[in-house]
Design a binder for these strands. Structure first.
Lengths: 196, 196
DNA sequence: CAAGAATGTGAGCTAATGCTCACTTTCGCA
DNA sequence: TGCGAAAGTGAGCATTAGCTCACATTCTTG
């Protein structure tokens, strides 16, 4: 039977490998050549697979990117939850959150950068929106534990501040994670503790 | 004579009007329909001009965007210089800089947003790089007048913080400029004055 | 007014890219 | 071992968008 929709489930290990190869190929292209170079044909070729196969696992290009994003977000949410649900003191929680963000960005800086760029041209599925708001919720709870008066907007601002500073550092080619951590911490704590 | 390169100079008022119309058309499309909708054909049509004419004034699509950016940056540099070269007290200078950034963003929020997005897929001409570094330089000088120990990176961070918070607010549809100004000020001053 | 310069036109070329589909190969199982 | 299902193939279609060029129109100047 000819399939017009992507196959629902990979049943043989072979097909799972193909799927993984395509996702990793997409990541590799983003990392090495940027968002403009990420075409479906390129991803298939890099994965060592035909375009036909690619479209058996992904209904369209967006869904490949979404898979990548889901992978990243899921891992972040996981780490953030661990911190958020711990009984560490609030300021230590904040520090850990910052560390998570920075580690994440510096693990594969270019990939993180391009992924963020590409994200804006993507309409998120319900599942992805749920993931995003879960992350936002956990961050909000950590920020609130630090400053009970903080509004949701403040928490969002903290995330944004964290993100740009880290992005900029990565883009500049900074490798001294310590220095970046110091600046981000200063920005976040400065923002949250500023009075008058 | 058929021109293969864009005409150097517009000599008749008619041609100047055409040029302006094209730039404003591009701005309008970015504002109303986003970066994806900004095609050269669309810009020409919206300007009430043929694509042929468009290509007599702009060698390629990038150059249209560059013109728009130059217009924005030049006006910003102008305002920033006025503040930077005044003899206001340092903290007042900082406040004015923040106000300039916010006013700029909120004058045409969507345009500013899309322009920033589109900017990343643009390699800047020498002239544009010069403009950018002039702006950076002025900001650095204001930040230094406020805190002589601030490194160039710190000044860049200030700009970035200012930018994201304002962007996010615009994207969220916030219209209360006062509230945004308050948060941005808090973030910037918090960052610059944070101790320990 | 003539003539050339300046300005304007738009059909259509080219290249890129997302994606389809008719078909082949490989796998697992009775 | 043979057969149906799963997995894989790739030429090529459809669309889109940047851009060209041979030509038409309008302006300006001596």
């Amino acid at each position: 039977m000819t399939q017009h929709a992507p196959r629902k489930q990979a049943r043989q290990t072979r097909s799972i490998a193909t799927q993984t190869a395509i996702i990793e190929a997409a990541a590799h292209i983003l990392e090495q050549h940027g968002a403009a170079a990420l075409t479906t044909n390129a991803a298939a070729e890099r994965a060592g697979v035909s375009i036909g196969s690619l479209y058996q696992y992904f209904p369209n290009k967006q869904s490949i990117i979404a898979s990548l994003l889901r992978r990243e977000w899921a891992s972040m949410l996981d780490q953030i939850r661990t911190v958020s649900q711990s009984d560490l003191p609030p300021d230590e929680k904040l520090h850990r959150l910052i560390a998570i963000a920075i580690d994440h960005q510096f693990a594969r800086p270019r990939l993180a950068l391009e992924l963020e760029y590409v994200e804006s041209s993507l309409e998120l599925s319900e599942e992805m929106q749920h993931l995003a708001s879960s992350i936002a919720g956990e961050v909000r709870s950590v920020v609130r534990s630090f400053d009970p008066d903080a509004s949701p907007v403040i928490a969002a601002d903290v995330v944004s501040i964290c993100r740009v500073l880290t992005n900029d550092a990565a883009m500049r080619g900074e490798t001294d994670t310590q220095a970046v951590t110091r600046r981000v911490t200063r920005a976040v704590l400065g923002f949250l503790t500023y009075r008058e």
